[in-house]
Design a binder for these strands. Structure first.
Lengths: 99, 99
DNA sequence: GGATAACTTAGCCAATTGGCGAAGTCTGTC
DNA sequence: GACAGACTTCGCCAATTGGCTAAGTTATCC
């Protein structure tokens, strides 16, 4: 049944790649690979306003890449699919081919 | 030196993900994983006009994912970094977490 | 050389994305 | 209850993306 993927499947897959197709979001994902972080920490990391970062995180969450956990007044995000970290090696080799 | 990736590196990485962040382009990449194809074959596959497909392919080429080879009047594209195919398994597991 | 076919490039338009500040929600403190 | 801090949601805007048709290139066939 995986032999002939439907258009809907490709659309859903593209959604995941789209979530990763932003330097700030990649930076956050890498940071989250080292442990959970609250929104304000990530905002300081990428140097954007909190509303902006919050929207980026909700995109990642919507794509199924991260999950959030509200504790008190803070919201902590964590990487829920660590296998995306494997992408970076391949992407690095892709970039090596760019002239 | 890979311990503290720069903003420029993340931008370049995001470019690769951006190239994959489109259902039609994913479909083409998967087709190319089974062998080289000319533009007209890919156009028929995704059901778009040839100029549209040509631009998608130049995006993939620009990202370093595919390469082209002009033979006569036709241009054949092939996957130059097959490791991107490994992404699909992980992405599938990501999607499984989407509610 | 003229006609056709395969692509690419250019120009145009609608739709999406990404950033911000303002406003709203929720939690803990006084 | 009033207030402050952490987030999220909401408008608004500029910039990018994605599709098409039209026009330009290059190779093949006659």
């Amino acid at each position: 049944m995986a032999s002939k993927p439907s258009v809907a499947q490709f659309k859903a897959q593209a959604q995941v790649f789209k979530a990763l197709a932003h330097p700030g979001r990649l930076l956050m994902v890498e940071e989250l690979s080292r442990g959970e972080r609250c929104v304000c920490e990530l905002a300081a990391l990428v140097g954007s306003e909190m509303p902006t970062v919050s929207r980026h995180l909700s995109q990642l969450k919507n794509a199924g890449i991260v999950d959030d956990d509200k504790r008190g007044a803070q919201v902590f995000y964590r990487l829920v699919t660590p296998c995306v970290m494997n992408f970076f090696q391949c992407v690095a080799s892709v970039r090596r081919k760019q002239t």
